[in-house]
Amino acid sequence: MAYLINRLLSVALTLFLISVITFAVTNILPGDVAMMIMGTQSNPEALAGLRESLGLNDPQIVQYGRWIGGILTGDWGTSLVFKEPIGPLIAQKVTASALIVVMSMTIALVCAIPLGVWAAVHRDRWQDGTASTAALIGVSLPDFFWGIMLILLFARGLGWLPSSGFVHPADDFTLAVRHAFLPSLALGLGLMAHLTRMTRATMTGILGQEFIRVARAKGLSERTVVWRYGLANAIGPVLTVAGLQVGYLFGSIIVVESLFNYTGMGWLTYQALLNRDIPLIQGSVFVIAAVVMLANLAVDLLYTLIDPRIRLA
């Protein structure tokens, strides 16, 4: 329990720091919100009036207080590009991206763990070489390459899946998954390569441990030894790395969502950056940071369930 409180406190502290950094960085960028609204050719007096009414002349700390107060009370401001309240806009896009992130992570883990274990069991033989080479190729090639290949193969070539667009899961779940599948696979392939290498390395270390030999000396079947005794010890480090990769995923969705014209957080952030939509940039960055932190918190809590040594620490 003390552990949980400690972790939650540190998450709150980190989110606070992220909010300060986000706010500061977007305010250092050239051009302010008033200029964005009225355009560069606008009347200086009108611009000054708008600045005054938006409170842009107040000290930074007051502006930050106003912004974070709005974030906490649910008033996230209005997007300059979309002319919509930012809160509901982000909420909708986060749902879209969450679908991709969860699907790609599932695809990656479901493939990477067995592949990594298989490579570790057959260490230094052809199975290991094959898995390691495949993983190396996966790590080396960028996501958009996989995206293009997948579109060519599954959308253009075989025509099995749509190549672009987004359907909200609440409207038609099956169709939503079909639209999310190719972007998820494009992201999942690179991720899978990382996690396969991680699983292989961790399992290789664990299979060399004495308790594995003790398990074999008990007469347990090789399947039990590897998949229960071994994997129970390897799963924690693998999930930790998977948690860290959630941050990497949110970086990658900017490219992949644009490629598949999938209107999620990545696509939204890209639009915000392109149009210097400062309130939207602030909101998006803050949400992405929060989601990544929560994903890692979830992994840490999961770890305590797997590894008894953490519980007492």
């Binding site: 441990q209 004495e210 308790f211 003790v214 000396a217 129970a232 010890n233 590894d307 040594r309």
Partner: peptide, 14 residues
């Protein structure tokens, strides 16, 4: 069979 290292002979997560 009994092995040398009691610190690593037991599976830490069971």
């Amino acid at each position: 069979m009994i092995f040398q290292e009691p610190m690593t002979s037991l599976n830490p997560v069971f």
